[in-house]
């Protein structure tokens, strides 16, 4: 496919720019504003078609997510700070951890619960919407992935030799530890909260089914998996790290003993990141050559979003309503593409 054809959506429905630094992550806040966190420590906010640069960290931004309040973001950096970046560009420090890196952030918000979380070394810190620290959860080794379940009841952290599940409202603070020897480097939890899956250093995924304690092993990746994303229905787990989008079936009896579905295969080009659509059974994926595509899982149809040549894709995020996709690359390319009906 020519780059011109692959860029059709970007050309007709995209806002794009060169940001000049490694795009670490993209996110939409709960009000729908897009922003990008960069390796130069800035957060770039996109309002309409105007870009604003906000100095958030002295160093690199390492983690980025929507904040619990509608109009802003949570950012963690290698300057040891957890900050809130408001849509108007204001930066408020929530916590500072000295020399330690703030490597992961996560948030949860519904009608009655609002929780912010960050991982710093071996600890996960939970904060409320006012910025007060609720609790600190200790792990046996550095936390490598952090995620809330779909209801905000539990927070899940991956680390050496397994994962820890913490009930955030629990008084006792004893985690349920899911053990599997080795280095787990990312974590996801299924929408129904019954399956926890990690990426491992050995180019494989490991999963636990919480209801019966069963282990799941998913292997065969040529590269390391960095992105794990369940579809809205929870029937599929999409993963990066192969020369295609690798989708494991999580409906019915689970993935054990089954072959995964592979979409958008490309010889010698690894899928570097991906994000499942928040409403439909579809997944956006980025590759090491810069290509970004949208794959419909049911029909297996592939829609190109952005062509090759703009650096390995390092960030993808959907707006909550699923109408817009934010994408960014290691070499500083960034864009927001609008998929809404016209």
């Amino acid at each position: 496919m020519s780059t011109a054809a692959a860029d059709h959506l970007l050309d007709t429905r995209g806002i794009r720019t060169e940001l000049g630094a490694f795009v670490v992550a993209a996110a939409f806040d709960r009000g729908g504003t897009a922003a990008f966190a960069l390796g130069d420590g800035t957060v770039r906010l996109l309002a309409g078609d105007a870009w604003q640069s906000v100095a958030a960290h002295d160093g690199a931004a390492l983690a980025f997510a929507a904040d619990v309040l509608a109009d802003g973001f949570l950012a963690g950096g290698d300057d040891g700070r957890l900050v809130r970046v408001a849509r108007d560009g204001g930066v408020t420090e929530i916590a500072a951890f000295g020399m330690k890196w703030v490597e992961h952030v996560a948030s949860f918000a519904d009608g009655k619960t609002q929780l912010r979380a960050c991982a710093v070394g071996r600890q996960v810190h939970l904060f409320d919407a006012a910025g007060a620290r609720l609790k600190t959860l200790a792990h046996p080794s550095t936390v490598t992935g952090l995620v809330f379940d779909a209801r905000g009841k539990r927070v899940v952290a991956s680390h050496y030799n397994g994962t820890s599940l913490w009930f955030v409202a629990s008084k006792s603070d004893n985690p349920r530890v899911l053990e599997w020897k080795g280095s787990h480097t990312a974590v996801a939890i299924s929408p129904d909260g019954d399956a926890v899956v990690t990426a491992m250093q050995e180019k494989a995924l490991h999963g636990w089914r919480l209801s019966d304690g069963q282990h799941m092993r998913m292997s065969g990746y040529p590269g390391k998996t960095q992105a794990l994303s369940f579809t809205r229905s929870g029937k599929w787990l999409a993963s990066s790290g192969a020369e295609a989008i690798v989708l494991w079936p999580f409906g019915g009896s689970g993935p054990t003993g089954k072959a995964p579905m592979e979409l958008a295969g490309a010889d010698g080009i690894l899928c570097t990141t991906l994000a499942c659509h928040p409403q439909h059974e579809a997944v956006a994926a980025g590759f090491s050559d810069g290509l970004v595509i949208l794959a419909d899982i049911g029909t297996q149809r592939i829609l190109p979003v952005a062509g090759t040549g703009r650096g390995p894709v390092s960030a993808l995020a959907w707006s909550a309503d699923g109408t817009r996709l934010a994408l960014g690359s290691e070499t500083g390319f960034a864009a927001v593409v609008d998929f809404s009906r016209r």
Partner: peptide, 17 residues
Amino acid sequence: TVRGDLIRIVGGLMKRR
């Protein structure tokens, strides 16, 4: 045996190469 912290740190540092 491998130093997992180094793998993570090198990954982080590469964001401001």
